[in-house]
């Protein structure tokens, strides 16, 4: 956790935006745009994952 608050340190996490059908992206603006027209039948959720994490597994875990 120290690395998260250390200034000028390389980011160790990534933010992903996912929907209830399991689709995910990494662009917040695109996620907002898709929600504004109900593109995927639900609103997106946000998760912050370590850079090396398996996004598929984590999204699956979040939705289970």
């Amino acid at each position: 956790m120290d690395s998260l608050i250390t200034p000028n340190a390389a980011p160790t996490t990534q933010t992903i935006y996912y929907w209830l059908d399991g689709y995910w992206i990494t662009d917040k603006e695109e996620a907002d745009l898709m929600d504004s027209i109900n593109a995927f039948g639900s609103v997106h959720q946000v998760a912050e994952l370590p850079l090396g994490a398996d996004i598929e597994v984590e999204v699956s875990r979040l939705l289970s």
Binding site: W19, L20, D21, G22, I37, N38, A39, F40, G41, S42
Partner: peptide, 12 residues
């Protein structure tokens, strides 16, 4: 549990 999937939205 997911109540919706991509087929229910505009994309679907």
């Amino acid at each position: 549990r997911p109540l919706a999937n991509g087929s229910e939205g505009l994309y679907g």
